Simulated scan of single mutants.
Amino acid sequence: MNLDQQIQELIDNAPEDDLTTQGIMAIAPVLKLLASRFKHETYFVWQNFQQQWVLTTLAHQTKPNLSKQVIYTFASAGDAASSNTSPGSPQSIPIISLLFQLIAMESVDSLVIFDRPGDLMSGTEIARQDLQNLIHTQLQQLYPSGGDIPSDLA
Rank of each mutant, 00 (worst) to 15 (best):
H60G: 02
A75N: 01
F74C: 04
S92R: 14
Q129N: 12
P64Y: 10
Y43V: 01
S86H: 14
P64S: 12
K32R: 14
Q8G: 00
M1P: 13
M105Y: 05
L120K: 13
Q52L: 11
Y143I: 01
E106S: 14
Q101R: 15
N13Q: 13
L58G: 05
T56F: 13
H40R: 15
L134W: 09
E125V: 03
E41R: 15
T62A: 06
L153P: 00
S76A: 04
D109N: 15
K68W: 06
D12S: 14
I93R: 14
A35Y: 05
I27N: 01
L31F: 10
T85H: 09
L120E: 09
Q50T: 04
W53D: 10
E9K: 14
S97G: 05
T56I: 11
K68C: 07
L111I: 05
N84F: 11
Q101S: 12
E16A: 10
D17P: 07
A154V: 02
P94E: 01
G118M: 00
W46T: 01
I24P: 09
Q22D: 15
Q47M: 10
I103M: 13
L99V: 08
A104C: 01
Q101G: 04
T85G: 04
T21Q: 11
E9N: 12
G118L: 07
A28D: 06
L142Y: 03
T57W: 07
L111G: 06
A81M: 11
S151C: 03
S89A: 13
P144H: 04
I11V: 14
R116T: 06
L153K: 03
H40L: 06
V54P: 04
G146Y: 00
A14F: 12
I95S: 05
Y43R: 09
S97R: 11
L19Q: 12
L55V: 12
K68A: 02
Q132L: 15
P87Y: 13
Q52S: 11
S110D: 15
N65D: 10
L19C: 10
F114T: 03
I27A: 06
F114I: 01
A81I: 09
N133C: 05
Q140H: 08
K63E: 13
R128G: 06
T62S: 02
L10C: 09
D18W: 06
L55E: 12
G118P: 02
F49S: 13
L10W: 00
T62M: 04
I71W: 01
M105V: 00
G88C: 09
L111T: 12
A81L: 14
P90I: 09
E9C: 01
I11Q: 10
M1T: 13
Q50R: 12
V45Y: 09
P144V: 02
A35D: 08
I135M: 02
I24R: 06
I103C: 09
D12R: 09
K32F: 04
Q101N: 14
E9Q: 15
W53V: 07
R128F: 00
V45D: 08
